[in-house]
């Protein structure tokens, strides 16, 4: 940072790379506007992410109990994910209006796939031996789920949560590019058109921080939740 700052003042850096202090001043120039934009983008991302979690985990839960539906659910998921985000955005905007609803849904669409894959893999990640044990004790399906399937799936679920959080931010940002009134993506696009280099950098850094934070929060929760180590291979 210091190096960047010094070399900027010495005139070594191109116009396109501002000094850290310049980016900082862009933040100080309009902290309220940037805060509002950040709130807008974050809220859309969180709403979409929450919907994606409910839908993906619900679908995986059904797939875990009804084996016949498993391929259908997975193929639907793959099919939906193969629609490019960019193709879905204008269509949703046409159908649902160009508002927070559309942008939340895009965030959900962007982030549900790793959640679905993680949950579907996770719900089948138990060991066969363990399942036989539960069978010998004639455990009810619900108890099998609670005592075996759910805990076994946690590492996979967290992988899904971690991967999906930055994608929800990406979806929320991308949806703003089709013409939202407010949001980090909007500020970014405006700054780009006005060739406001400091502002471009500021918005980019804020966006990166958002998705980094999404990942980091889940990594922290994961570390606090999964206290046991990976099953050790005790064969000698």
């Amino acid at each position: 940072m210091l190096l960047l700052e010094l070399s900027k003042h010495a005139g070594y850096l191109p116009v396109t790379l501002p000094a850290p202090s310049q980016v900082w001043s862009a933040l100080l120039a309009n902290p309220r506007g940037i805060g509002l934009a950040l709130g807008e983008t974050t809220m859309n991302a969180i709403r979409g992410y929450a919907v994606a979690i409910v839908v993906a985990l619900g679908a995986a839960f059904i797939a875990a109990f009804v084996a016949a539906l498993r391929p259908t659910i997975y193929n639907l998921g793959v099919g939906l994910s193969s629609i490019p985000l960019i193709a879905a955005t204008p269509l949703l905007a046409l159908w649902l209006g160009n508002g927070p609803l559309t942008r939340s849904l895009i965030a959900g669409l962007a982030s549900y796939f790793p959640l679905l894959v993680g949950a579907m893999q996770g719900f089948r990640a138990y060991e066969t031996n363990h399942m036989e044990l539960f069978h010998v004790y004639s455990a009810s399906r619900w108890r099998v789920f609670r005592f075996l399937i759910l805990p076994s799936s946690l590492p996979y679920l967290f992988t899904g949560f971690k991967l999906a959080a930055p994608l929800a931010v990406l979806g929320s940002l991308t949806a703003e590019l089709t013409g939202a009134e407010n949001g980090i993506g909007v500020l970014m696009l405006n700054a780009l058109f006005n060739f406001d280099i400091k502002m471009v950098w500021l918005t980019v850094l804020v966006a990166c921080a958002m998705s980094g934070a999404g990942y980091a929060i889940w990594a922290l929760i994961e570390r606090l939740t999964i206290y046991w180590e990976a099953p050790s291979n005790s064969s000698g």
């Binding site: 036989e132 044990l133 004639s138 046991w228 099953p231 005790s234 064969s235």
Partner: peptide, 19 residues
């Protein structure tokens, strides 16, 4: 017998739940 929980089974691997 299984439904009455009359059977105890020990597997080759300990098959403990790691959590």
């Amino acid at each position: 017998a299984r439904l009455e929980h009359a059977i105890g089974f020990v597997f080759q691997s300990a098959t403990l739940l790691p959590w």
